[in-house]
């Protein structure tokens, strides 16, 4: 249902051009939880912004339900890495979650239901009247996730959503993503630089090369559907998959892409 075809993105700077993405092609079937993993600075965010319709690719296309994505599509929700900055600090948690629903011509009652359900799903019942900045980082990211699922999207895009939270919270949030995905069955594209996270979460993992980015490896994760932090992460298959992807990424960083990667890295560091 979501097709990325021959995607290429070149940034034209002040007398210098940076090729962030060279050629990316993959598709995401309905209901899949796909993780995109790659070395830092490999253009993951650029890809995600192209898919979200926030950025025009230089060439190639993104197709959702057979329609070319030229702007943010109706039924797509994005969870950004910068949780603190993606929530409206002047609105309460409830208003933050409710705001995107307002243009969806729903009854007030239905809106309230959706918000309550979403907040319940992320375990935030009772904080609806708080302001985002009164919550911890992990809770703020939960609000952002609740906002995304209350929107009832068909595709959920997540851009390194847990990069800035501590390790324990991160584990909890990963489980939350799995449970939300189970519960709502939404097609999910999850971008991360963390190999463990990609393996733990995904049904499938795409390994991207360093910039200029191409698909390095497309790999199905054959771990059981029921996962938990303790048993899954200690399973031998988990370790194998992890090692495999690690090797791929090391290969991706190989001498060929070194200079370009460094270039792209400074760029992404400035951005992220």
């Amino acid at each position: 249902m979501l097709d990325v075809r021959g995607l290429r993105k070149v940034y034209e700077g002040w007398g210098r051009t940076v090729e962030a993405i060279r050629d990316l092609t993959f598709d995401v079937p309905e209901g899949q939880l796909l993780c995109l993993v790659g070395p830092s600075g490999c253009g993951k965010t650029t890809l995600l912004r192209c898919v979200a319709g926030l950025l025009r690719p230089t060439s190639g296309e993104v197709v959702l339900h057979g329609n070319n994505v030229t702007g943010p599509p109706e039924d797509m929700a994005v969870v950004f890495q910068e949780y603190g900055r993606s929530l409206f600090p002047w609105h309460t948690v409830r208003r933050n979650v409710e705001l995107p629903l307002r243009r969806k011509k729903l009854s007030r009652k239905r809106r309230t239901e959706l918000v309550d359900e979403a907040l319940e799903a992320v375990g935030l019942t009772g904080t609806a009247t708080a302001y985002p900045w009164q919550l911890s980082g992990g809770m703020q990211q939960r609000v952002a996730i609740a906002r995304a699922i209350a929107y009832e999207p068909q595709v959920l895009l997540m851009d390194e959503p847990f990069a800035a939270v501590d390790a324990q919270t991160r584990g909890e949030l990963e489980d939350l993503i799995r449970s939300v995905w189970h519960r709502f069955g939404v097609t999910t594209l999850f971008v991360t630089h963390d190999i463990d996270e990609a393996v733990y979460l995904g049904q499938r993992v795409i390994v991207m090369s360093s910039s200029p980015t191409v698909v390095q490896e497309d790999l199905a994760i054959d771990l059981p559907d029921e996962r938990d932090q303790l048993t899954t992460r200690s399973a031998p298959r988990f370790a194998e998959l992890r090692a495999h992807i690690y090797a791929e990424i090391q290969r991706a960083k190989g001498p060929a892409g070194g200079a370009a990667a460094a270039e792209a890295e400074t760029q992404e560091a400035a951005g992220a």
Binding site: E12, W14, T45, R49, Q267, G271
Partner: peptide, 15 residues
């Protein structure tokens, strides 16, 4: 705001 938030705005303003 830190300079150049997302690559695209940075590029846009730079241009």
């Amino acid at each position: 705001l830190p300079e150049g938030q997302a690559p695209d705005t940075a590029q846009r303003s730079r241009r």
